[in-house]
Design a protein around this nucleic acid. Structure first.
Length: 212
DNA sequence: ACATTAAGTGATT
DNA sequence: AATCACTTAATGT
């Protein structure tokens, strides 16, 4: 049977007993799917060990990684979804062998009011996950700007008929509606990748740059 | 030599 | 990605 005693620093004894009693223990092989988009949510999964990959499926059926759920964590989506009997928006798969406890959704309400530790845990999970998502979102936006900068430099080069661009990072930043620091970092990366050479107020586009 | 401006970096949100 | 704070490098006077 499952042993939840090591969670005692996370939840109060009374809650642990409830989890022990009401929760269903499950073990899932690596690669197995936990839940698919569209399926209704009946359980809150609490991961005891292993790693769960949570991803979103786009129109063309491609998978985009949202985040991983580690041991002692739970899926933030289910907290918000299950209150209103929503369907899953995500796919969850076991990245490696996973042990988990399935907690009935029906207990959520009661637990939130009865157990301070549960409330705290839920809040913490949602907050943590939200920040994780913000991070991935930023990365996507960052890649976009990266592309825009390359296009910008190419156009500038074409317009002047030269591979030597005359502009400060500040000016470029203003053109692309971003901050100087960001441009400096992107250019630095291009320099490290041997695509450009950087000088004061000047950028030399190397051969490799035009192959981007 | 000193002041000013451009660019580089780490940490934080 | 944006902002802040701070450092370092280049330029002008």
């Amino acid at each position: 049977m499952m042993d939840l005693s090591r969670l005692s620093n996370l939840f109060e004894p009374a809650l642990l007993r409830q989890m022990q009693e009401m929760g269903k223990y499950r073990k899932i092989e690596g690669g197995q799917t936990l839940i698919e988009p569209g399926q209704s949510i009946q359980f809150i999964p609490f991961i005891l060990s292993g790693l769960v990959k949570v991803s979103r499926i786009d129109d063309e059926g491609r998978e985009i990684l949202l985040y991983y759920v580690n041991a002692n964590e739970s899926c933030a989506m289910t907290f918000t979804c299950c209150m209103d009997n929503h369907e899953s928006e995500i796919r969850a798969t076991a990245d490696e062998e996973v042990e988990l406890v399935m907690l009935p959704v029906s207990l959520m309400d009661e637990w939130l009011t009865r157990f301070p530790s549960w409330k705290k845990y839920v809040m913490h999970t949602i907050h943590y996950r939200f920040n994780e998502l913000l991070k991935t979102l930023d990365q996507i936006a960052f890649q976009k700007l990266d592309e825009r900068l390359i296009v910008y430099l190419k156009e500038k080069s074409k317009a002047t008929g030269s591979s030597l661009i005359n502009a400060s990072h500040e000016q470029i930043a203003q053109d692309l509606a971003t901050s100087r620091v960001v441009i400096s970092r992107l250019l630095k990366r291009l320099e490290q990748d041997k695509k450009v050479l950087l000088y004061r107020n000047q950028i030399k586009l190397l051969q490799a740059f035009f192959e981007l």
